[in-house]
C-alpha cells in the first residue's frame, strides 16, 4: 500500500511538472500595472488596449521625455520646450527654437490631460494619437531634427535603455513603436485636476466675489460665452477645431492642412483653459502676450472671416465691459494647478 501511495504521489508531481511545461513563462515577472489616479471631476480615461500603462513603461517614457538623445545633435529633449513649471509650454516664447537655431511655426502646446483628447493632437489635430505624435517633434527640422534609424541606433547602443525597454515591454529589441508607446504612457500620466476651481467644486475652498462673477460671465451666453467651446469643468475644452477670426484671411491654414478641406481653413484646436495663466503667449501663433489681449480680441477684435465659428458670428462686439474682462481673468486664474506644476513624478528623473 505504501508503494501505491509513493507511486501515485510521484505520478502527481510528474503531471504537475508536465502541465507547467505547457505554460509560457508565467513565472517571469512582467511589468507592473500603473495605478492611474483620476481626480474627481475628470472622467475615466480610455487607455488603448495595445499600450496599457505600466510603472516601467511610464518611467521609461519619463526618462526619454527628458533625454536629449532623441535630438539630432543630442542637445534638446521634449522637456526643453515643454517645461513643467509652465504646465509644459515653453516659457514666454512665441515659437520655440529647435536644435538648428530655427524657430518653429506654432506656439508649443501645454501637455496635460492628453489622454482625454481623442480628436487629434497638435493645433491642427494632425497626430491621431499620443503614440503617433511622438515622432513628429523628433523628425521636424525646426525642432529636434533627427532621423528615426539614427534615434533607434542611439537607444540600442545606450548603456541603460535596452534594459529599460526590456523591463517595460519584455523585449531587448528597441523599435519606433516601443519608443512611441513609452513616451505616450508617460504623457497619459500628466493629469491636472486640482486647481482652486476644482477645490471650489468639491466644496473645500471658496471663490472670491470677483472670481464668482467671472465664472458667471464665463457661462453667460450674452457675455463671455466661453463655455460653448471651453466647456466648464472636466477638461475645459471640447477638443474641436474652430476658426475664431484671428485674421480676415488665414495665414496658417491650420486644420485644412490635415483634412485638405478648404472649409477647415484657419481652424485650430480649442485649447484647454486649465493652467491658462501659466501658458502665455496665446493662440496657435502666440500673438497675444497676456489674457487681457485675448479677452479684448474675443470682445471686439475678431474678424468676420469666411469660416468664422457660429458662436462668434452671433456674438455682439463690445458686449464685455473692462470690469467684465478683469473678472473673467480672475476666474481663469483659479484654474492654475500648482500641485501639477510641482509634482515630482513629472519632473526630470
Amino acid at each position: 500500500m505504501k508503494k501505491v501511495v509513493i507511486a501515485l504521489s510521484v505520478l502527481l508531481w510528474l503531471c504537475l511538472f508536465f502541465l507547467n511545461a505547457c505554460k509560457k513563462d508565467d513565472t517571469t515577472a512582467g511589468p507592473t500595472p500603473y495605478n492611474l489616479v483620476i481626480p474627481a471631476g475628470l472622467p475615466p480615461m480610455q487607455i488603448p488596449a495595445g499600450n496599457p500603462l505600466t510603472v516601467e513603461g511610464v518611467l521609461l517614457g519619463r526618462k526619454l521625455f527628458y533625454d536629449p538623445i532623441l535630438s539630432g545633435n543630442n542637445t534638446q529633449s521634449c522637456g526643453s520646450c515643454h517645461k513643467q513649471k509652465f504646465a509644459f509650454v515653453d516659457s514666454s516664447l512665441k515659437y520655440s527654437v529647435g536644435i538648428d537655431n530655427l524657430p518653429g511655426t506654432r506656439n508649443a502646446m501645454p501637455l496635460f490631460n492628453l489622454g482625454w483628447n481623442t480628436k487629434g493632437l497638435f493645433w491642427d489635430g494632425g497626430a491621431t494619437n499620443l503614440e503617433s505624435q511622438v515622432i513628429a517633434p523628433i523628425l521636424n527640422p525646426l525642432e529636434m531634427h533627427d532621423l528615426l534609424p539614427n534615434v533607434i541606433n542611439k537607444l540600442r547602443g545606450h548603456s541603460e535603455y535596452p534594459a529599460l525597454f526590456k523591463a517595460a515591454f519584455g523585449t531587448d529589441s528597441i523599435t519606433v513603436s516601443l519608443l512611441m508607446k513609452a513616451i505616450a504612457q508617460f504623457e497619459r500620466t500628466l493629469i491636472s485636476g486640482n486647481s482652486k476651481y476644482d477645490r471650489y467644486v468639491r466644496g473645500t475652498e471658496s471663490l472670491t466675489p470677483q472670481e464668482l462673477n467671472g465664472l458667471n460671465l464665463y457661462t453667460d451666453m450674452s457675455k463671455g460665452d466661453c463655455n460653448h467651446c471651453h466647456v466648464l469643468g472636466s477638461t475645459f475644452t471640447d477638443f474641436e477645431y474652430r476658426n475664431t477670426g484671428l485674421d480676415s484671411i488665414a495665414v496658417d491654414k491650420g486644420r485644412a492642412l490635415v483634412t485638405l478641406n478648404p472649409t477647415d481653413d484657419g481652424k485650430f484646436k480649442t485649447p484647454t483653459l486649465r493652467n491658462i495663466a501659466l501658458t502665455a503667449p496665446y493662440m496657435h501663433d502666440g500673438r497675444f502676450s497676456n489674457l487681457n489681449e485675448v479677452l479684448n480680441f474675443y470682445n471686439t477684435g475678431f474678424h468676420y472671416t469666411q469660416n468664422l465659428d457660429l458662436n462668434l458670428q452671433t456674438a455682439v462686439k463690445g458686449r464685455l465691459s473692462t470690469q467684465d474682462m478683469l473678472d473673467i481673468i480672475a476666474f481663469l486664474n483659479t484654474l492654475t494647478d500648482t500641485e501639477f506644476t510641482t509634482n515630482s513624478s513629472f519632473s526630470k528623473p
Binding site: 503614440e131 515622432i135 521636424n140 528615426l148 523599435t175 519606433v176 513603436s177
Partner: peptide
Amino acid sequence: NHTGDQAGDLDPINGMIWSWNT
C-alpha cells in the same frame, strides 16, 4: 492608416509616414 504605432513594413522607420499628419 492612422497610427504610426506599428511594425513590419508599416514601421515608421521605413520613412513612409507623415508625422505631422498621421
